[in-house]
Amino acid sequence: MIHFDNVTKVYPNQNRPALQHVNVAIEKGEFLFLVGPSGSGKSTFLRLVLKEERPSQGHVHVAGKDLNRLTNWKVPHLRRRIGCVFQDFRLLPNKNVFENVAFALEVIGKPRRFIAKVVPEVIDLVGLEGKAHRMPDELSGGEQQRVAIARAFVNRPMILLADEPTGNIDPATSIGIMKVLDRINRTGTTVVMATHDAAIVDAFRKRVVELEDGRVVRDQSRGVYGQAY
């Protein structure tokens, strides 16, 4: 589903590469934790998948397509197949839960009837039954993140990228968020989650890819956050 083929990324005006010779293959339906300290290249990894950045060297393949060859014109279609969740939720404060989720479908031109049918289903899926008409500032952090996940998932993407989704949320609430991501993963969606949260990684026992200074230092199935001692 996602293949990094000897990818190096150097940002302009920086000597140190953000990623160096990264080779990772993520298969369809996998759940993968991307761990490592700040500045180790986790976010760059995710941005490369979205084609927000281009690799300086090497190739990134998403769903069988070489992103280097993907024209800018087709980038929106790539992104329709990838959902994104962030640490800071990125909800629209002037829209309620339903409208926030529906926004993702409206802007890609889905018909109103389809939206009316699909959005409530997803709101239920992430565990926000009965809260469709709340505004974001009436929700807790965990609930806001659920809205963001619903928005990322409403178009049924093949891949869900989550950049520290539990970073702003207390541990107890984080478990709930992880359960939602797990539920989404069970529908066949590939989930890539960048995180600092050792407790979560240790509890879930999924594949772990650890980055350090832009290099893959560990790729372990059913891994834990820290080195296995």
Binding site: L50, V75, P76, H77, L78, R79, R80, R81, I82, C84, R90, L92, F103, A104, V107, I108, G109, R151, A152, N155
Partner: peptide, 17 residues
Amino acid sequence: RRETGIMRLVGASNLYI
């Protein structure tokens, strides 16, 4: 910029943005 940022992320076409 929030709206347009989200539009970009969810794959709205440039024309639409």
